[in-house]
Amino acid sequence: MPIERNLPATDTSLPVLGVLISGRGSNLRALMTAIDEGRLRARIGVVISNRPDAAGLAHASSAGVPAVVIDHKAFGGRADFEDALVARLGEAGVQVVCLAGFMRILSPVFLERFGGPVLNVHPSLLPSFVGVDAQRQAWEHGVKVAGVTVHLVTPELDAGPIVAQAAVPVLDDDTPETLAARILVEEHRIYPAAVALVAAGGWRIEGRRFVRGR
């Protein structure tokens, strides 16, 4: 039976995003730009980093977006850390979580407790090259086409239903770094579009397939 998702979105109450980061926040900036340009009808309720030195925190603060640090090292274990994440997301009224270079694996307990969609952008054409350093994995494997995937997060690593993908050619003179840079351009393009699609609601999951509303 299809799973349907309908998120409230009216002129006076836009869907609220929570963005989780660990580093520079380039995809966070892409989301903020898409909101400013009207391509993403949503607002960011909070940006949370598990690292106090994450550069993305400054980008959020300079844009007037609440930015907080919840350092995973300050907790006795994953459960306490994720309890703090869920609590802060709840305080901000977050309906959709966007992982933007968040270098922590979220447990099934977090996904169940949050309850709403959680999105991730991964620098490969899933299901190929899961996990870290996917661009180097693709380059070392010798593929001729790499890319980027936006997917819903499930308990299995990089295995959730695929919302959007974009292909990037692998050139003969590429290095892992040049390939990663070209993939990043596509990340910044398709992640806001995929978040907009999910935040607008009306979609459903059929088996493993993400199906847009009609």
Rank of each mutant, 00 (worst) to 15 (best):
E4M: 00
R5L: 13
T12C: 09
P15R: 10
V16K: 11
G18L: 04
S22N: 10
G23W: 08
R24W: 00
G25Y: 10
S26W: 08
N27H: 07
N27M: 11
R29E: 15
L31A: 01
M32A: 15
A34S: 14
G38C: 09
L40Q: 05
R41F: 02
A42T: 06
A42Q: 04
G45I: 02
V46F: 09
A54W: 13
L57F: 02
L57P: 00
A58Y: 01
A60W: 13
A63T: 00
P66Q: 14
V68A: 13
I70W: 13
A74W: 13
F75R: 14
G77S: 10
R78L: 14
R78K: 15
D83F: 07
V86P: 01
R88L: 01
L89T: 05
G90Q: 09
A92S: 12
A92R: 10
V94H: 06
Q95R: 13
V97K: 02
F102N: 00
M103D: 05
R104G: 03
R104D: 00
R104Y: 10
I105E: 02
L106D: 04
L106P: 08
E112F: 00
E112G: 01
R113E: 07
F114L: 02
P117N: 01
L119F: 02
P123K: 04
P123M: 06
L125Y: 03
P127H: 03
F129D: 01
V130L: 01
V132I: 15
Q135E: 12
R136H: 12
A138N: 05
E140M: 12
H141C: 03
H141A: 15
H141V: 10
V143Y: 06
V145D: 07
A146L: 10
V148S: 03
T149P: 01
V150E: 00
L152T: 04
T154G: 07
T154V: 14
E156G: 01
P161V: 04
A164M: 15
A164V: 06
A166I: 04
A166K: 14
A166V: 03
L171I: 00
D173S: 13
D173F: 02
E177N: 06
T178C: 09
R182L: 05
L184R: 15
V185S: 04
H188P: 01
I190Y: 08
Y191Q: 03
V195P: 02
A196W: 12
L197K: 15
L197T: 15
V198N: 03
A199Y: 08
A199K: 09
A200K: 10
G201D: 05
G202R: 13
R209A: 15
R209N: 14
F210D: 02
G213Q: 13
